[in-house]
Computed example of a mutant assay.
Amino acid sequence: MAGLALAGVALAGCSSTSSSGSAQSAATTGAPSATTASTTAADAAVGDTSSSAVSSGGATSSGAAGSGASSSAAGGSGKPVALLLAKVKPSNGGAGFDADMPKAKPAWIAAVSVNLSDGSALKDQTLGSLVVNLAAMVDEAAKTQDLDSLRKLCWQGCDQLATLMPAKDASGRTGYERLSQLLEQTHPDAGYTNEFSMDYPGFSANQHGAVTTLDQKDMKLLGATQHYTGLRTGIEMTDDGVDPKMGWYAVLPPDM
């Protein structure tokens, strides 16, 4: 079954689902750290707690320089997600997690975006808590440049990780940094499927409605328009059975 497309993320300057997609991401994914302040202000206007949570969690708002050090201190290891996933068998994609998935540390959860693009709380959505927990683990693995853990967490779009994550865009930022930026600083919205899914950034979701104030701030942050072709990532339902499972779709194709 098609899962939930949860976090829209397109990494620039490396191979992606298509060569044109990666070329477009380099042109559209921005890294203007100066815009972080305006994003934070917009979040505050709708009650978004992600920015203040990032501060309390010890992660930088840019999701780049300095975040790895704070993450290491919190986890007691340079790659704390690897410790958390020590008993999880590696996979070549297809990883789905239910309510019994490893639990992200509170500081990791505090660092990720907790509101949808309309300002409503992600945790109030069906399976929202599973989405937040999985997003937090992915974010922490990205901030600590833990490729092996990202592979373990990945459900689809996994074959691009080895090339995409270490590659730098025109501004010198790695895929790890841009992935973390999407999960911490942009606001998700429902994906393209009828099942439960979340895309990052939310404004890039194909079924997204009218542009919201938070969408506008996210667009400014990424230097993009609603027809965004940069890095997109998502979290979606992989199994809607008795124990629903969620999976991380590492690099969402532009047409999803």
Results as ranks from 00 to 15, higher is better:
Leu179Lys: 09
Gln156Val: 07
Arg151Glu: 13
Trp155Met: 09
Leu150Cys: 03
Arg178Thr: 10
Asp159Leu: 08
Cys158Thr: 11
Leu182Asp: 02
Arg173Asp: 09
Glu177Pro: 15
Gly175Cys: 11
Asp159Ile: 01
Met165Gly: 00
Tyr176Met: 10
Leu183Pro: 00
Leu150Gln: 05
Tyr176His: 08
Met165Thr: 03
Leu179Thr: 06
Gly157Cys: 06
Trp155Thr: 11
Leu183Gln: 10
Tyr176Lys: 12
Cys158Ile: 12
Ser149Phe: 01
Gly172Trp: 02
Glu177Val: 13
Glu184Ile: 07
Ser180His: 04
Leu164Asn: 14
Gln181Arg: 14
Gln156Ser: 13
Leu179Gly: 00
Ala162His: 10
Thr163Cys: 04
Lys168Gln: 13
Gln156His: 09
Arg173Glu: 09
Lys152Glu: 03
Ala162Met: 12
Ser180Lys: 06
Cys154Pro: 15
Leu183Thr: 03
Gln156Phe: 03
Thr163Gln: 14
Leu153Asn: 05
Glu184Trp: 03
Arg151Lys: 14
Ser171Glu: 12
Ser149Gln: 13
Ser149Pro: 05
Trp155Phe: 02
Glu184Met: 15
Lys152Val: 06
Tyr176Glu: 03
Leu183Phe: 06
Lys168Thr: 09
Asp169Cys: 06
Ala170Thr: 12
Leu161Gly: 05
Gln156Asn: 14
Cys158Leu: 10
Leu182Pro: 00
Cys154Tyr: 01
Gly157Phe: 00
Ser180Gln: 05
Gln156Tyr: 06
Asp169Tyr: 04
Leu179Tyr: 07
Glu184Leu: 12
Gln160Ala: 10
Ala162Trp: 11
Gly172Cys: 06
Ala170Cys: 02
Leu164Asp: 13
